[in-house]
């Protein structure tokens, strides 16, 4: 093999090594990306960490506090751009399940959400979590619809129409998913 051919062969080999690095790195990131989405959209990754309903003494007003926890069990960071939910308080003195008929229309209802720019949105590192406290001081005539269950003494809440928009690491593709409804006694 003459010198020029040897030089070309070495260059080709070098390019092959660089390409091998690019290939392995791309595969690893693609697998990590898919795994991060797959795990985040799995059960229990978006949950209520704590919820409190406190009635202000001597009034019909309530202070409602719900802390959401978003868990990232994937390999890449998640940027949480927006989250939206609907809160209903189920009046259990009516035995009809909360999802049947028009029961929800008659119940106490609030909407919670945040919408942020990607650059300032919270980043959840792999293996970490992000807690988002949400609260509202409920006043007005509809607060009378907040009724504790006579049997358990708890306020039963329905968290429905959950919608999350997020990004994984620096990947441009926007992800959206709709976690299952939650029904909790607090």
């Amino acid at each position: 093999m003459n010198r020029v051919a040897l030089l070309i062969a070495l260059g080709y080999l070098g390019l092959g090594l660089v390409a091998g690095g690019i290939y392995v790195s791309s595969v690893a990131k693609f697998v990590g990306y898919s795994e991060t989405i797959f795990r985040f959209e799995g059960p229990g990754q978006v949950r209520v960490e704590s919820a409190n309903f406190t009635q202000d003494p001597g009034t019909e007003n309530w202070t409602i506090r719900i802390t959401w926890r978003f868990v990232n069990n994937g390999r890449l960071p998640i940027i949480l751009q927006s989250f939206l939910f609907e809160l209903y308080v189920d009046n259990r003195s009516d035995p009809t399940p909360w999802y049947v008929g028009g029961k929800q229309a008659l119940e106490f209802h609030r909407t919670g959400s945040f919408f942020l720019d990607r650059t300032i949105a919270p980043t959840i590192d792999p293996g970490g979590y992000y807690e988002w406290p949400w609260g509202v001081n409920a006043t007005g005539p509809d607060t009378s619809k907040i009724v504790r269950d006579p049997g358990t003494g708890k306020v039963w809440i329905v968290l429905t129409d959950l919608r999350i928009v997020f990004f994984v690491a620096d990947v441009e593709s926007r992800q959206e998913f709709f976690p299952s409804d939650l029904y909790l006694g607090v």
Partner: peptide, 25 residues
Amino acid sequence: AWSFLGALIVAAFFIAAFFGDFGPI
């Protein structure tokens, strides 16, 4: 060997260009 190396180069750069979000360049 040359053919496999060629395929690796072609595939790696194709992926890096076509699926830009996942490539290191």
